[in-house]
Design a protein around this nucleic acid. Structure first.
Ligand SMILES: [Mn+2]
Ligand SMILES: [Mn+2]
Ligand SMILES: [Zn+2]
Ligand SMILES: [Zn+2]
Lengths: 137, 137
DNA sequence: TATCAGTTTGTAATGAATACAAAAATGATG
DNA sequence: CATCATTTTTGTATTCATTACAAACTGATA
Protein backbone atom coordinates (compact mmCIF):
# COMPACT_ATOMS: atom_id res chain seq x y z
CA UNK A 1 0.00 0.00 0.00
CA UNK A 2 1.41 3.36 -1.06
CA UNK A 3 1.61 6.43 1.14
CA UNK A 4 -1.64 7.97 -0.18
CA UNK A 5 -3.55 4.82 0.68
CA UNK A 6 -1.91 4.80 4.11
CA UNK A 7 -3.27 8.30 4.71
CA UNK A 8 -6.74 7.25 3.69
CA UNK A 9 -6.47 4.20 5.93
CA UNK A 10 -5.55 6.27 8.96
CA UNK A 11 -8.32 8.72 8.16
CA UNK A 12 -10.83 5.89 8.39
CA UNK A 13 -9.32 4.64 11.63
CA UNK A 14 -9.32 8.14 13.05
CA UNK A 15 -13.11 8.11 12.61
CA UNK A 16 -13.52 4.65 14.13
CA UNK A 17 -14.14 2.86 10.84
CA UNK A 18 -12.53 -0.47 10.06
CA UNK A 19 -10.51 0.14 6.89
CA UNK A 20 -11.69 -2.52 4.48
CA UNK A 21 -10.59 -2.52 0.85
CA UNK A 22 -14.00 -1.35 -0.40
CA UNK A 23 -14.13 1.50 2.10
CA UNK A 24 -10.61 2.59 1.22
CA UNK A 25 -11.58 2.72 -2.45
CA UNK A 26 -14.81 4.65 -1.82
CA UNK A 27 -13.05 7.25 0.32
CA UNK A 28 -10.16 7.51 -2.13
CA UNK A 29 -12.57 8.10 -5.00
CA UNK A 30 -14.54 10.82 -3.21
CA UNK A 31 -11.35 12.58 -2.12
CA UNK A 32 -9.87 12.56 -5.59
CA UNK A 33 -13.17 13.51 -7.26
CA UNK A 34 -13.73 17.14 -8.19
CA UNK A 35 -17.41 16.97 -8.99
CA UNK A 36 -19.40 15.87 -5.93
CA UNK A 37 -20.21 12.33 -7.12
CA UNK A 38 -23.43 10.38 -6.66
CA UNK A 39 -23.53 6.84 -5.26
CA UNK A 40 -23.83 5.65 -8.84
CA UNK A 41 -20.81 7.63 -10.05
CA UNK A 42 -18.78 5.98 -7.34
CA UNK A 43 -20.13 2.55 -8.19
CA UNK A 44 -19.52 2.88 -11.93
CA UNK A 45 -15.90 3.82 -11.35
CA UNK A 46 -15.06 1.31 -8.65
CA UNK A 47 -16.69 -1.66 -10.37
CA UNK A 48 -13.96 -1.38 -13.00
CA UNK A 49 -11.32 -2.08 -10.37
CA UNK A 50 -13.42 -4.37 -8.14
CA UNK A 51 -15.70 -6.42 -10.43
CA UNK A 52 -17.62 -7.92 -7.50
CA UNK A 53 -18.45 -4.49 -6.09
CA UNK A 54 -22.11 -4.12 -5.15
CA UNK A 55 -24.19 -0.98 -5.27
CA UNK A 56 -25.46 -1.87 -1.80
CA UNK A 57 -21.91 -1.69 -0.49
CA UNK A 58 -21.61 1.83 -1.88
CA UNK A 59 -24.79 2.87 -0.10
CA UNK A 60 -23.79 1.10 3.12
CA UNK A 61 -20.39 2.75 3.04
CA UNK A 62 -21.74 6.21 2.31
CA UNK A 63 -24.27 5.96 5.12
CA UNK A 64 -21.51 4.84 7.49
CA UNK A 65 -19.31 7.74 6.40
CA UNK A 66 -22.24 10.09 6.97
CA UNK A 67 -22.82 8.78 10.51
CA UNK A 68 -19.16 9.22 11.32
CA UNK A 69 -19.06 12.69 9.82
CA UNK A 70 -16.52 11.83 7.13
CA UNK A 71 -18.67 13.05 4.24
CA UNK A 72 -21.41 15.61 3.71
CA UNK A 73 -24.55 15.08 1.60
CA UNK A 74 -25.64 17.68 -0.93
CA UNK A 75 -29.32 17.73 -1.93
CA UNK A 76 -28.86 20.48 -4.46
CA UNK A 77 -30.25 18.69 -7.52
CA UNK A 78 -33.29 17.24 -5.79
CA UNK A 79 -33.08 14.03 -7.80
CA UNK A 80 -30.15 12.29 -6.12
CA UNK A 81 -27.70 12.83 -3.27
CA UNK A 82 -24.20 14.11 -4.05
CA UNK A 83 -21.32 13.60 -1.64
CA UNK A 84 -18.16 15.45 -0.70
CA UNK A 85 -15.49 15.15 1.95
CA UNK A 86 -16.20 17.14 5.09
CA UNK A 87 -13.99 20.20 4.83
CA UNK A 88 -14.17 23.91 5.42
CA UNK A 89 -17.56 25.50 4.97
CA UNK A 90 -18.35 26.50 1.40
CA UNK A 91 -21.36 26.91 -0.83
CA UNK A 92 -22.34 25.35 -4.16
CA UNK A 93 -23.50 26.41 -7.60
CA UNK A 94 -25.51 24.03 -9.81
CA UNK A 95 -25.61 24.74 -13.54
CA UNK A 96 -29.12 24.04 -14.80
CA UNK A 97 -27.75 23.53 -18.31
CA UNK A 98 -24.72 21.24 -17.94
CA UNK A 99 -25.47 19.90 -14.46
CA UNK A 100 -21.99 20.64 -13.13
CA UNK A 101 -21.64 21.57 -9.46
CA UNK A 102 -19.08 24.22 -8.57
CA UNK A 103 -17.63 25.11 -5.19
CA UNK A 104 -18.35 28.70 -4.24
CA UNK A 105 -16.10 30.32 -1.70
CA UNK A 106 -17.86 33.25 -0.15
CA UNK A 107 -17.62 34.51 3.37
CA UNK A 108 -21.06 33.66 4.68
CA UNK A 109 -21.79 35.59 7.88
CA UNK A 110 -23.93 32.70 9.16
CA UNK A 111 -21.27 30.02 8.90
CA UNK A 112 -20.30 30.35 12.55
CA UNK A 113 -23.83 30.55 13.92
CA UNK A 114 -24.91 27.79 16.27
CA UNK A 115 -28.59 28.74 16.21
CA UNK A 116 -31.23 30.56 14.13
CA UNK A 117 -34.53 31.62 15.64
CA UNK A 118 -33.79 29.32 18.57
CA UNK A 119 -33.24 26.25 16.37
CA UNK A 120 -29.98 24.35 16.87
CA UNK A 121 -27.95 24.26 13.66
CA UNK A 122 -26.08 21.13 12.62
CA UNK A 123 -25.65 21.73 8.89
CA UNK A 124 -25.64 24.82 6.69
CA UNK A 125 -26.10 24.57 2.94
CA UNK A 126 -25.90 27.43 0.47
CA UNK A 127 -27.16 26.45 -2.97
CA UNK A 128 -27.06 28.69 -6.03
CA UNK A 129 -28.66 27.60 -9.30
CA UNK A 130 -28.41 29.14 -12.75
CA UNK A 131 -26.17 29.08 -15.81
CA UNK A 132 -22.48 28.55 -15.26
CA UNK A 133 -19.61 30.62 -16.60
CA UNK A 134 -18.85 28.02 -19.29
CA UNK A 135 -22.43 27.60 -20.51
CA UNK A 136 -22.97 31.37 -20.79
CA UNK A 137 -20.78 31.48 -23.92
CA UNK B 1 -66.94 32.01 -6.00
CA UNK B 2 -65.93 34.03 -2.94
CA UNK B 3 -63.49 36.92 -2.94
CA UNK B 4 -60.49 34.79 -1.87
CA UNK B 5 -61.06 32.45 -4.79
CA UNK B 6 -61.38 35.45 -7.10
CA UNK B 7 -57.96 36.64 -5.98
CA UNK B 8 -56.47 33.22 -6.63
CA UNK B 9 -58.17 33.16 -10.02
CA UNK B 10 -56.70 36.49 -11.06
CA UNK B 11 -53.30 35.42 -9.77
CA UNK B 12 -53.39 32.47 -12.17
CA UNK B 13 -54.53 34.66 -15.04
CA UNK B 14 -51.83 37.20 -14.26
CA UNK B 15 -49.31 34.41 -14.87
CA UNK B 16 -50.95 33.29 -18.11
CA UNK B 17 -52.51 30.15 -16.63
CA UNK B 18 -56.05 29.14 -17.44
CA UNK B 19 -57.85 29.01 -14.08
CA UNK B 20 -59.36 25.56 -13.94
CA UNK B 21 -60.99 24.26 -10.78
CA UNK B 22 -58.12 21.86 -10.02
CA UNK B 23 -55.53 24.60 -10.46
CA UNK B 24 -57.46 26.97 -8.24
CA UNK B 25 -57.56 24.35 -5.51
CA UNK B 26 -53.87 23.52 -5.77
CA UNK B 27 -52.84 27.15 -5.59
CA UNK B 28 -55.25 27.83 -2.75
CA UNK B 29 -53.86 24.92 -0.78
CA UNK B 30 -50.24 25.96 -1.21
CA UNK B 31 -51.02 29.56 -0.28
CA UNK B 32 -52.89 28.59 2.85
CA UNK B 33 -50.35 25.93 3.84
CA UNK B 34 -47.74 26.83 6.42
CA UNK B 35 -45.47 23.85 6.03
CA UNK B 36 -44.10 23.71 2.48
CA UNK B 37 -46.17 20.75 1.26
CA UNK B 38 -45.12 17.91 -1.02
CA UNK B 39 -47.09 16.87 -4.09
CA UNK B 40 -48.52 14.07 -1.99
CA UNK B 41 -49.58 16.38 0.84
CA UNK B 42 -51.50 18.43 -1.69
CA UNK B 43 -53.06 15.34 -3.26
CA UNK B 44 -54.15 13.82 0.06
CA UNK B 45 -55.91 17.01 1.05
CA UNK B 46 -57.54 17.85 -2.26
CA UNK B 47 -58.81 14.34 -2.94
CA UNK B 48 -61.17 14.80 0.00
CA UNK B 49 -62.84 17.68 -1.79
CA UNK B 50 -62.38 16.40 -5.36
CA UNK B 51 -62.72 12.60 -5.25
CA UNK B 52 -61.69 12.23 -8.90
CA UNK B 53 -58.45 14.15 -8.36
CA UNK B 54 -55.43 12.42 -9.85
CA UNK B 55 -51.87 12.53 -8.57
CA UNK B 56 -50.77 13.20 -12.14
CA UNK B 57 -52.82 16.39 -12.16
CA UNK B 58 -50.99 17.56 -9.05
CA UNK B 59 -47.62 16.94 -10.71
CA UNK B 60 -48.76 18.55 -13.98
CA UNK B 61 -50.05 21.58 -12.13
CA UNK B 62 -46.95 21.99 -9.99
CA UNK B 63 -44.69 21.76 -13.02
CA UNK B 64 -46.82 24.35 -14.79
CA UNK B 65 -46.67 26.66 -11.77
CA UNK B 66 -42.90 26.18 -11.68
CA UNK B 67 -42.53 27.14 -15.36
CA UNK B 68 -44.63 30.24 -14.82
CA UNK B 69 -42.72 31.19 -11.69
CA UNK B 70 -45.70 30.93 -9.37
CA UNK B 71 -44.06 28.50 -6.96
CA UNK B 72 -40.54 27.65 -5.83
CA UNK B 73 -39.20 24.12 -5.26
CA UNK B 74 -37.28 23.29 -2.09
CA UNK B 75 -34.90 20.32 -2.20
CA UNK B 76 -34.02 20.58 1.47
CA UNK B 77 -34.97 17.04 2.54
CA UNK B 78 -33.38 15.25 -0.39
CA UNK B 79 -36.17 12.70 -0.55
CA UNK B 80 -38.96 14.72 -2.12
CA UNK B 81 -39.65 18.21 -3.44
CA UNK B 82 -41.44 20.71 -1.23
CA UNK B 83 -43.23 23.73 -2.68
CA UNK B 84 -43.98 27.27 -1.61
CA UNK B 85 -45.45 30.38 -3.18
CA UNK B 86 -42.85 32.64 -4.76
CA UNK B 87 -42.40 35.49 -2.31
CA UNK B 88 -39.65 37.54 -0.76
CA UNK B 89 -36.30 35.83 -0.39
CA UNK B 90 -35.96 33.81 2.79
CA UNK B 91 -34.12 30.76 4.06
CA UNK B 92 -35.28 27.48 5.58
CA UNK B 93 -34.61 25.30 8.59
CA UNK B 94 -35.31 21.54 8.52
CA UNK B 95 -35.70 19.74 11.83
CA UNK B 96 -33.99 16.36 11.56
CA UNK B 97 -36.16 15.04 14.39
CA UNK B 98 -39.73 16.10 13.59
CA UNK B 99 -39.25 16.90 9.90
CA UNK B 100 -40.86 20.32 10.13
CA UNK B 101 -39.59 23.08 7.84
CA UNK B 102 -39.41 26.60 9.25
CA UNK B 103 -39.00 29.89 7.44
CA UNK B 104 -35.89 31.74 8.50
CA UNK B 105 -35.79 35.45 7.95
CA UNK B 106 -32.22 36.62 7.92
CA UNK B 107 -30.70 39.36 5.88
CA UNK B 108 -28.50 37.40 3.52
CA UNK B 109 -25.94 39.66 1.87
CA UNK B 110 -25.99 37.49 -1.26
CA UNK B 111 -29.72 37.77 -1.93
CA UNK B 112 -29.26 40.62 -4.37
CA UNK B 113 -26.29 39.15 -6.22
CA UNK B 114 -26.78 38.39 -9.89
CA UNK B 115 -23.56 36.37 -10.21
CA UNK B 116 -21.04 34.36 -8.19
CA UNK B 117 -17.60 33.53 -9.60
CA UNK B 118 -18.92 34.53 -13.03
CA UNK B 119 -21.89 32.13 -12.87
CA UNK B 120 -25.32 33.65 -13.54
CA UNK B 121 -27.63 33.15 -10.54
CA UNK B 122 -31.29 32.26 -11.02
CA UNK B 123 -32.12 30.75 -7.62
CA UNK B 124 -30.64 31.07 -4.15
CA UNK B 125 -31.41 28.54 -1.43
CA UNK B 126 -30.25 28.75 2.17
CA UNK B 127 -30.87 25.50 4.05
CA UNK B 128 -30.20 24.96 7.74
CA UNK B 129 -30.61 21.53 9.32
CA UNK B 130 -30.60 20.52 12.96
CA UNK B 131 -32.96 20.24 15.91
CA UNK B 132 -35.78 22.74 16.09
CA UNK B 133 -36.75 24.91 19.03
CA UNK B 134 -39.68 22.63 19.90
CA UNK B 135 -37.74 19.36 19.73
CA UNK B 136 -34.94 20.72 21.93
CA UNK B 137 -37.17 20.45 25.00
C1' DT C 1 -10.75 -26.31 13.82
C1' DA C 2 -15.14 -24.24 15.33
C1' DT C 3 -17.34 -20.17 16.23
C1' DC C 4 -18.87 -15.56 15.84
C1' DA C 5 -19.28 -10.64 14.69
C1' DG C 6 -18.74 -7.68 11.08
C1' DT C 7 -18.79 -7.01 6.05
C1' DT C 8 -20.11 -7.72 1.39
C1' DT C 9 -23.19 -9.13 -2.03
C1' DG C 10 -27.55 -10.00 -4.86
C1' DT C 11 -32.30 -9.64 -5.15
C1' DA C 12 -36.61 -7.79 -3.94
C1' DA C 13 -39.24 -3.90 -2.44
C1' DT C 14 -40.32 1.01 -1.80
C1' DG C 15 -41.63 5.48 -3.18
C1' DA C 16 -41.30 9.91 -5.75
C1' DA C 17 -41.72 11.38 -10.23
C1' DT C 18 -42.43 10.85 -15.24
C1' DA C 19 -44.37 8.84 -19.74
C1' DC C 20 -48.11 7.92 -22.20
C1' DA C 21 -52.59 7.46 -24.05
C1' DA C 22 -57.56 7.39 -23.27
C1' DA C 23 -61.46 10.05 -21.49
C1' DA C 24 -63.54 14.30 -20.33
C1' DA C 25 -64.12 19.20 -20.54
C1' DT C 26 -63.89 23.47 -23.03
C1' DG C 27 -64.87 26.64 -26.51
C1' DA C 28 -65.25 28.30 -31.10
C1' DT C 29 -67.84 28.02 -35.37
C1' DG C 30 -71.60 27.21 -38.46
C1' DC D 1 -77.87 22.81 -31.22
C1' DA D 2 -74.23 19.84 -33.53
C1' DT D 3 -69.56 19.43 -34.85
C1' DC D 4 -64.89 19.43 -34.29
C1' DA D 5 -60.25 20.90 -32.51
C1' DT D 6 -57.72 21.95 -28.42
C1' DT D 7 -56.79 21.70 -23.70
C1' DT D 8 -57.11 19.44 -19.42
C1' DT D 9 -57.70 15.61 -16.50
C1' DT D 10 -57.27 10.96 -15.33
C1' DG D 11 -55.43 6.06 -14.76
C1' DT D 12 -51.92 2.96 -15.60
C1' DA D 13 -47.40 1.63 -16.58
C1' DT D 14 -42.61 2.77 -16.15
C1' DT D 15 -38.33 4.71 -14.42
C1' DC D 16 -34.89 5.41 -11.13
C1' DA D 17 -32.62 6.33 -6.58
C1' DT D 18 -32.55 4.24 -2.41
C1' DT D 19 -33.59 0.87 1.24
C1' DA D 20 -34.77 -3.87 3.18
C1' DC D 21 -33.39 -8.20 3.80
C1' DA D 22 -31.09 -12.45 3.97
C1' DA D 23 -27.39 -15.39 2.28
C1' DA D 24 -22.40 -15.73 1.57
C1' DC D 25 -17.99 -14.38 2.83
C1' DT D 26 -13.99 -12.72 5.90
C1' DG D 27 -10.90 -12.54 9.55
C1' DA D 28 -10.01 -12.88 14.32
C1' DT D 29 -10.17 -15.49 18.43
C1' DA D 30 -10.70 -19.52 21.63
MN1 LIG E 1 -18.06 21.27 -2.46
MN1 LIG F 1 -40.61 29.24 3.05
ZN1 LIG G 1 -22.90 24.80 -17.15
ZN1 LIG H 1 -38.46 19.53 15.40
Amino acid sequence: MNTKMMNIKSELEKHGIKPTYQRLCVLEFIEQSQDHPTADHIYENLVKKIPTMSRTTIYNTLNLFLEKGLVVPLTITGTEVRYEITTGQHHHFLCLKCGRIYDVNIQCPLSQSKTVDGHQIQEIHGYFKGICKNCLN
